[in-house]
Amino acid sequence: MCVTQILDFCEVVKVQFGSDESMQYLFYLLLCLILIVLQTTILPNSFGSLRFYDLIIPVAIYFSLYRPFREGFPVLLLAALAMDMISGAPAGIYLTTYIWLFLAFRQTWRFFDVKHSYFYPVLVVIGVLFQLLIFWVVISIHAGHVVFTEDGIRLVFFQVFLVVITAPFIFPFLQMFFGAADRLFPGRAIDNG
């Protein structure tokens, strides 16, 4: 019901103001905004001291594997800046994660056939581990010694477990979302990388 209303709203806005191209970017940014709000309001209150994994990572990987560079890069750049500014983390940490994941996976699928949906949860696990690795390195540099805590290890296992459970459902959702974007704003040829 709500999704239909949003799609109707996008259709009206598109007719009134925008080109397909700009509307598509707005559509993607809307998705990122929803995910950022979700993971800064509801999700942090759901698992005590543990946290859900970063929901932008599955989107970054999807952009990397299945969408053109000119679509994914600017959207992820803005999402990363928003995350950097809204969180208490050192500036640039999310930017590093998203952009490097995006670029790395774009190169990977040229050599390995990882575009099949079966691989998607594995890739998200790699993405989440990559982000945790970056966080760990930054924290250790800041602390001046290698930070190794029991809570940290528990968090890693917890997030990997969540990815394994949820990623198979996220993939069809993203397929549906990007399919809807292509149908709503068809003015732009999508070459899928």
Binding site: R51, S87, G88, D151, L155
Partner: peptide, 12 residues
């Protein structure tokens, strides 16, 4: 709002 990561602690 709260920090999305468990490694850093902030509020909005």
């Amino acid at each position: 709002g709260r920090d999305p990561s468990a490694w850093f602690q902030s509020l909005v």
